[in-house]
Write a protein that binds this DNA or RNA. Sequence first.
DNA 1: CGTCACATTGATGCCTCTCAAAGCTTGTGG
DNA 2: CCACAAGCTTTGAGAGGCATCAATGTGACG
Lengths: 199, 199
Amino acid sequence: MQASGNKIESLWADAQQVDLARGERLFLRGDAPQALYWLETGRLRLSRCSIDGSETNMQTVHAGQTFAEASLFSQRYHCDCCAEETSRLRFLPREQVLERLETNSGFALALTQQLALQLRQARLQTELSHIRSAKERVLTALRLQSNDAGQAALPSSWKDFAAQIGLSHEAVYRALAQLEKDGSLQRESRQVQLRALPD
Amino acid sequence: MQASGNKIESLWADAQQVDLARGERLFLRGDAPQALYWLETGRLRLSRCSIDGSETNMQTVHAGQTFAEASLFSQRYHCDCCAEETSRLRFLPREQVLERLETNSGFALALTQQLALQLRQARLQTELSHIRSAKERVLTALRLQSNDAGQAALPSSWKDFAAQIGLSHEAVYRALAQLEKDGSLQRESRQVQLRALPD
DNA sequence: CGTCACATTGATGCCTCTCAAAGCTTGTGG
DNA sequence: CCACAAGCTTTGAGAGGCATCAATGTGACG
């Protein structure tokens, strides 16, 4: 992980940059993909509207992540991209990406690694969504975000957290209250301390 | 998509091969990843056991797909791999993958494309899991698998289909019965004909 | 022809969604 | 510094839907 981790940023040093204000949109579903993006600072949200009008978060992009890779080979973007915070990002036009894949092996390796990582996270997310119990889903989601000491810090609000794991925010609050009552975790604003697993 | 699509198979022509009998396992969660795999024929299942003992399908691998890419940069496999049918697969040891990424730009491009595709599918899967209504979820899942004419062929049983979309098989059967009653679809064994979308 | 797994339908209970209301936090402007 | 607004947090009550258990039907395969 670390071996080429430092390289990623340098790979984007000479790329063009864009700034987004909070709430501003980078692209919408259906737009023709033009580039591969890398988020330097800020936070983005990739979301998608269902037929019934409800919105689901596909992915939250944090600083240091590349995104919209999936659209590199697609005809259309399949989600909307909106800035949750003031953000700065770099981008490489499609042709340049393909060119670099051919000429710069470090780039190919870094991109492959990034994709593999996101794929793993996406699959974990799917697995998470199949947990029916609200308590269990909240707990599992928090474990995934926690460090070795069992501490997790929420990047945003609990309401957002609820949307990310596919529960109503009421269900999350109730689950949190129960988990805290059980002694499974402790809350302090948006910092969470998980109790170690019994096994 | 097509540009390098034909190349994928040729990229695996000189790779070593393994045969798996039905029910045989390739690796288990926790094993150290050794290689990148490509499924030539057959069908595999990547699954994962939760703490409570229930099993969730992470991914069903069909002929022509690469898999276990996510483990290329991980220390451990994060799921079990089991053959659902007699299968033949090719594999490239980890070091050879990294080497090819550096020396063979076509390989880098094909692998990136494969990863991007699977990432998109994984995200669609997540979105699917967030649909509460069994009817809607079944219908949406079938639409994703259908061709332009609205025809979808199930690769396996409805029971498997139910597991893939995170519903009990009973709920799926009931949803199918209702959808057929509504006229939203028609079934013939494992062939499904969807009615065109109203909009 | 027996076995096994899939397919189908019924009844019941629990859990989460939804609607609702109130307290709490944060930010903004006068 | 206060007042107001907007959004997050929290708890309550009700209803609908899916999981679960259960039973039977239906192939497929040896």
